Amino acid sequence: TSSCAAPATGCGWPGSARTGSASPSRRAARSAGCRSSGGSDGPIKVGSINGITGLFQTPEVPKAVKAVFDEVNAAGGINGRKLRLVAKDDAMDPARAGQAARELIKSEGVVALAGSSSAVDCGLNRATYGKEKIVSIPAVGVDPSCFTSPNIAPVNPGPYALTTAMLYYASETLKHDKVCVDYTVLPGSGGGIENAIKAWSDLTGKSLAHKNLAVGQGDPTRYLVADKNAGCQAVLYNATVGPWFAQARTQGMQNVDFILAANSYTDANAKVIPADMNAYAGTEWQPYTDPTLPGNERWSRLVDRNGIQKTAFSQGAVMAADVFVQVLKGIKGDITRESVTRAFKQMKPIDYPMAGSPWVFGPGGEHSPIKGSQFVKADKGGWKVLPGGFTVPTKK
């Protein structure tokens, strides 16, 4: 990116065009010197890469981010400049995800990415973000690279920290000795899950009774029979809910506690779980099915007002947009890619009531700031929030 003649204030000089006192030649110089990094008096462009089509779909995420930006713009924007979201659909296609990142950075001139929700973005584009010195604040971090990259810091715990919390809940809160895992693992994510299981073992001194990280989407009978044979008292599971619980009931597994990953925490899944089965779910933020919980009030009002689907993913979208806006409001001088990156690397932690721990970007080489999970239980076709607040794994 291009540098500017006044580093103390980014790409804006005193008496810039915003105040109406800069000369035409000076305005032209500023524009020419800073165009590639986003400095101008026009809109602040912010990128995101989302799964709108394909196998991993989160269409509500960019809608919720835009709703936050619209709210900020209606109140005057950031120092008089409007926020403009430029969202790209990668369809869970690596080629499209790579192209999207290049277009956002090179063609659109975004100052940062905020509110991405892609299963392939982080692993594919982490090197690009580092090379271009641009930060990304995903609403939904999925693959391990989202949590181990210097220029990416998600606002969700992610499937790995969540898996550790779920295992911890099964063994330490539910007091089960025989804990098992049946997971469908996305390509490239197996190492992250193995590390999450190891983290639980290191904290508790316990080991799994049975593990299968290659669960398919077909008939689940063989997986459930293996769980029965292993004497599983609790089973962590992250694939299709309806057929799994129908077959578990047929197998007479009503005494087993099934603990579902966050992707299964939906209204539709609660309705298909048999009433005599024990199904829990780990949530990444405050349970979205209770709008009265801390932090959920604002999210609930915002998505209702804009006709956006209430999901955990839309929670992450609002949080990502909110913390992004808060950091931008603290920037002195012009808002450019350089000043935005610097602000996130130097920021103080933000307490966000929807999350289980403070969120911070910071200067480190990897970022996984959000820890812990709340737990809910399927009850009469819905989800009941369980007492105890956020479960944050600690050394025993």
Rank of each mutant, 00 (worst) to 15 (best):
N156I: 04
L167Y: 00
P144W: 01
L174G: 01
D182R: 15
I137R: 07
R102E: 10
F147A: 04
R102T: 14
P150W: 05
V142T: 06
N151R: 14
I105E: 10
A119D: 15
T173M: 15
A170D: 01
P157W: 03
P150I: 06
A119P: 00
P157V: 02
N151Y: 08
A114W: 15
G205H: 01
G205A: 07
N151C: 09
I137W: 09
T173Q: 15
K106P: 13
W200Y: 10
F147N: 13
A139G: 12
V110N: 02
L162V: 06
A139F: 12
T173A: 15
F147L: 08
E108P: 11
P138D: 02
T148N: 12
C146M: 10
A139H: 10
A127V: 13
L113E: 10
A161C: 10
T184F: 12
C146T: 03
G141D: 05
L124D: 07
T163N: 05
D121E: 10
K131N: 07
A170V: 02
G205I: 01
K198H: 09
L208C: 00
T148D: 09
V185T: 15
T128G: 08
S149E: 09
S171E: 01
W200G: 06
T184W: 08
N156Y: 07
P144I: 05
F147T: 01
V181Y: 03
L203V: 07
P144L: 07
I105R: 08
Y160G: 03
G205M: 01
Y183I: 11
Q99P: 14
S118I: 07
T163K: 01
N195V: 12
A199H: 07
H176Y: 05
I152T: 09
K106R: 15
